[in-house]
């Protein structure tokens, strides 16, 4: 009885422990400053949009074909 109670306690403690460890880790992390961050966002944004525009251009080819066949 005591043992199972112990186990349940342990099970309940696991998420608490996890959150504690996790937040401690995040505290320890080096965060980018706002200048770095804007640079990253801009670079990623441009890359993402560029690839997306190429892909979308390909998809646009579908539209006339769909018109032809449907």
């Amino acid at each position: 009885m005591a043992k199972s109670g112990n186990q349940i306690e342990k099970l309940a403690e696991a998420p608490v422990e996890f959150v504690k460890d996790g937040s401690a880790f995040i505290q320890k992390c080096k965060k980018p400053n706002s200048k770095d961050f804007t640079k990253i966002v801009r670079a990623v944004g441009i890359g993402f949009l560029a690839v997306g525009v190429i892909g979308y251009a390909i998809k646009l080819v579908h539209i006339p074909i769909r018109y032809l066949i449907v």
Binding site: F48, V51, G52, G55, Y56, K59, L60
Partner: peptide, 17 residues
């Protein structure tokens, strides 16, 4: 995955169809 998701994103934002 990345290219398709980027494509869908552009389509959802700037899609002219």
């Amino acid at each position: 995955t990345a290219v398709t998701i980027a494509t869908n994103f552009v389509g959802d934002v700037f899609g002219v169809n």
